[in-house]
């Protein structure tokens, strides 16, 4: 009897011990907020909820601060000030705005102008909610306002000047990636050892998950078979970033034609060669802008640019065929079988 009682006590004592070793164990803390006119999600690996929350709020704060500097649609942003003063005078800007505009010019050069931050003069003509197609004359009049070569940077004076009146810089194709990078910088300097930040579809992964595995990212299927089976492929990311540009993100269909927000800088019309382009590189500022550039260039030229730059990429072309760069072929897991003639 006594022995059994002791055995019982022994068994009972195991239970709290089992749970107590969970205390202080690393967990993923997830938080989402609306910022930069989209949804921002931050995943933080930490053994303290308090630390994770604190670091996340700093990162969200940084994204909101960046957004206030570079928002194309807000009159109070530095970017709007640059655009308002196009053809008039140089505008003094913060180091972040300067950084981002310089980055966008580098990508414009490397992509042969397929990515052009001065697309703003054309993008304002399109309204994807009201389903408005701008007139050909309006577009052709403004095409001469699109060229990154007319952005004049003065590093000494920290100013940006647009040479022609009516020119507009729109950083919509690069700013979210930049924000994801900045958020990761803030988290790592706050002592966080692993995290993942998604600013809409621009994702930067840092460190490993508590189980020692890399973050897994799914690529959305541009033409999903159903709402639940909407992932085209999945791949692990370790200290890398991924972004996707798709013709399904902002679009409307009129008379059977799909009009979307990825505009060709030299025609002002939506690019037709791809359904979606995902780019994998070490920084989200690169993946965000190159996803746009590759989409504009189309599958063949786009693939060549990716291979030349040494970036990973997944291109779903107009016909729904999937093209993958050599470097990531063995890492990526295709979740849906290849389909043919699934365009539109």
């Amino acid at each position: 009897m006594k022995k059994k009682f002791i055995a019982l006590i022994a068994v009972l004592s195991i239970f709290p011990a089992l749970f107590s070793c969970n205390l202080g164990k690393e967990k993923i803390y997830k938080d989402s907020k609306i910022a930069m006119d989209t949804i921002v999600t931050i995943n933080i690996v930490s053994n303290s909820k308090k630390n994770a929350r604190l670091a996340a709020s700093k990162a969200f704060g940084e994204i909101e601060r960046l957004s206030s500097l570079i928002n194309f649609y807000s009159d109070g942003s530095e970017l709007s000030k640059i655009n308002r003063n196009a053809g008039k005078k140089p505008v003094h800007v913060s180091p972040e705005t300067m950084d981002l505009i310089k980055d966008s010019i580098v990508v414009a050069k490397k992509s042969g102008g397929a990515f052009d931050p001065t697309i703003g003069a054309i993008s304002v003509l399109w309204d994807f909610q009201k389903k408005l197609i701008p007139g050909k004359r309006d577009i052709s009049k403004r095409l001469k306002l699109v060229s990154y070569k007319n952005i004049i940077i003065n590093e000494k004076k920290q100013t940006v000047y647009l040479r022609k009146k009516g020119m507009m810089i729109d950083l919509g194709g690069i700013a979210k990636g930049y924000a994801a990078d900045r958020a990761i910088d803030i988290l790592s300097s706050s002592g966080i050892k692993a995290a993942m930040v998604s600013v809409a579809g621009d994702i930067r992964a840092y460190g490993l998950k508590p189980d020692g595995k890399p973050w897994m990212v799914g690529i959305r299927d541009p033409r999903p078979v159903s709402a639940t089976e909407n992932i085209l492929a999945a791949l692990p990311l370790k200290n890398m970033a991924i972004s996707t540009s798709g013709d399904y993100q902002r679009f409307f269909i009129k008379d059977g034609v799909r009009y979307h927000h990825l505009l060709i800088p030299w025609t002002g019309m939506p690019a037709g060669g791809c359904q979606s382009v995902s780019v994998i590189a070490d920084k989200a500022v690169i993946t965000d802008s190159f996803a746009t550039a590759v989409f504009i260039l189309g599958p063949e030229k786009g693939m060549r640019l990716l291979e030349k730059m040494g970036y990973g990429g997944v291109i779903v072309d107009y016909y729904g065929r999937v093209h993958i760069t050599e470097g990531i072929k063995d890492k990526i897991e295709i979740k849906r079988p290849e389909r043919k003639n699934h365009s539109g």
Binding site: K30, S32, I203, I219, R220, I231, S278
Partner: peptide, 21 residues
């Protein structure tokens, strides 16, 4: 300014941690 999310620890999180696109 409204976000409705399902905090799924069961399926979504185990397959992928985030979705791009």
């Amino acid at each position: 300014r409204i976000v409705v999310r399902v905090n799924s620890t069961k399926d979504g999180n185990r397959k992928v941690d985030a979705i791009t696109g």
